[in-house]
Design a protein around this nucleic acid. Structure first.
Lengths: 119, 119
DNA sequence: CGGCATCCACCAAGATACTG
DNA sequence: CAGTATCTTGGTGGATGCCG
């Protein structure tokens, strides 16, 4: 059954809405990342939420999950081809955030945790 | 005290994150709207949430609240100058949503409630 | 290392009724 | 018409422990 939307942006929010998805995706813009890497880049996310959000993004075709059959396990995530259609929006969201912080706090990098600077 | 962000997009989400804000803002792209008008355009939102989200957006300088001193009361909301810096992003979010629906369901307008068509 | 299951707390969001 | 106040609820997301 087809869902009814009152405005098309609702469909977008179904895919990239929520507390963590934009953050995860913004990290994946810069290339594929291992699970533990993402966990380190997003210190406040729990394992459960990370896995859950990644599953949903995978289900919606936004990211690819790459499993290496080895011990210990290795899994990587990357933007899919379809996910790439979001990369401009994601970049814009990041950029607007930077400008917003500067407008609010002034032009300093103090607002950024060290983890971000290693991009 | 200055908040710490792990990535700049978090700052953006603080402002336009949440379930309703992008929807509200997408409607305001097309011009100022009265409270009741927004309520009609977003049938599933409660009065409480609408007011609450509008207050927060106003507090963050994204929208202007225009009060006409008359009985019965008349209040309008519009994107502020600062809010205009989001309009491109908002349009992109809407556009992506449209394409996403088409990819998912095919090229039909059935997914849209009548309310949207009166734009 | 990456993922899953379970339990649980809390708050966002809904319902309802009332005010100016 | 627009907004407020209060009470309720359910689902999101957190903590923990275990598995392949």
């Amino acid at each position: 059954m087809m869902k009814k939307y009152n405005i098309s942006v609702e469909a977008t929010l179904e895919v990239i809405g929520g507390k963590w998805k934009p953050v995860i995706l913004c990290h994946l813009i810069h290339g594929k990342k291992r699970t533990g890497e993402l966990k380190r880049l997003i210190p406040n996310i729990t394992q459960k939420m990370l896995t859950q959000q990644l599953r949903e993004l995978e289900h919606d075709g936004i990211i690819n999950r790459i499993v290496y059959n080895q011990v210990p396990p290795k899994v990587e995530y990357e933007l899919s081809e379809y996910g790439d259609t979001l990369s401009e929006i994601l970049s814009s969201l990041c950029l607007w955030g930077e400008k917003h912080i500067i407008k609010k706090y002034g032009d300093t990098k103090d607002y950024l945790e060290d983890s971000v600077l290693n991009h």
